[in-house]
Amino acid sequence: MRTSKLMSATLAGLLGLTAAAQANELVLYCSVQEEWCRLMAESFQRETGINVLMTRRSSGETYAQLKAEAGQPRGDVWWGGTGDPHLQAAQEGLTLEYRSPMLAELQDWAVQQAETSGFRTVGIYAGALGFGYNSTRVTENPPACWADLLDPRFDDDVQVANPNSSGTAYTLLATLVQLMGEDAAFDYLVKLDANVSQYTQSGGAPIRNAATGETAIGIVFMHDAVAQAVQGAPIVPVAPCEGTGYEIGSMSIIAGGPNPDSAKRFYDWALTPAAQALGAQANSFQVPSNKGTPVPPESPALDQIRLIDYDFATYGSSATRTRLLARWDAEIGSRR
């Protein structure tokens, strides 16, 4: 009897742990560098007193999580990460339509991102795709173009993320398809595969591995390469000569999340110049979307890079994304 009472008390205690969300909280799914995520969470907490529960995951993984939790959403805001999975989530109704009063202060490309999605997402930063090489590992004849990465001397020395999990790697896939045509792009990727040592989960990992010399070349967004160089790593960022794509890092409010008020408060706050200036503090040198935010001097200047006319509506759509990823799996991922 005593034990059974104890057991029922225990069960009751366990249920107590599951009690619903407390007030004044924000569950933040963050898809940029951990350092920046932490700074954002901490600053918002300092400013508003709202307790932020933050998880960092790659944008592809966060999209999958949103989908898996669709019946019972557990997150409030999805902040950061490449725009394509944000657009796909918007298209599938996983995120909430919200017109922030801050929209008027934003750059055109950021507003355009919002319009493409029916105001279910918004641009928070932009950055061009490229790669970085370790100058102690590659001392002569450094690579300058996408084609140079196929050179046999980089055998087992190139890293890029897996496009299934990483928005960075999906941007590479979509960029090459737009630059070369789909079949030629896959032809290129199959040849590149011979030089790739590992497809990492998170998009930024290849350049960190290049910084320690674990790999010679990492294909990443250029601002990630710049960040390593600024911190003293022997990394040289490269804007590929054939031209390259870019991302519009985005933010969405998750539909049906537990704290909608905190979510909107964070959303508006994250679009202010003060909040966007935190990026540079956390060694993230993307171009911010608020016109009033000073562009960090280290940021790769977008007007000096040969940018393609990236078609966000097409390559962020569910159908195209799913098809390209399935083809990548069939021709590259599952062949390793």
């Binding site: 799914y29 933050m54 998880t55 557990r74 990492t200 998170s202 930024g204 990992a205 960190r208």
Partner: peptide
């Protein structure tokens, strides 16, 4: 684990993956 209830080992795994 979830955002609300994260465990030390899951957190460490994230840091290792990110190269920290």
């Amino acid at each position: 684990v979830s955002a609300r209830h994260n465990m030390a080992t899951a957190y460490i795994m994230g840091r290792v993956e990110a190269g920290e």
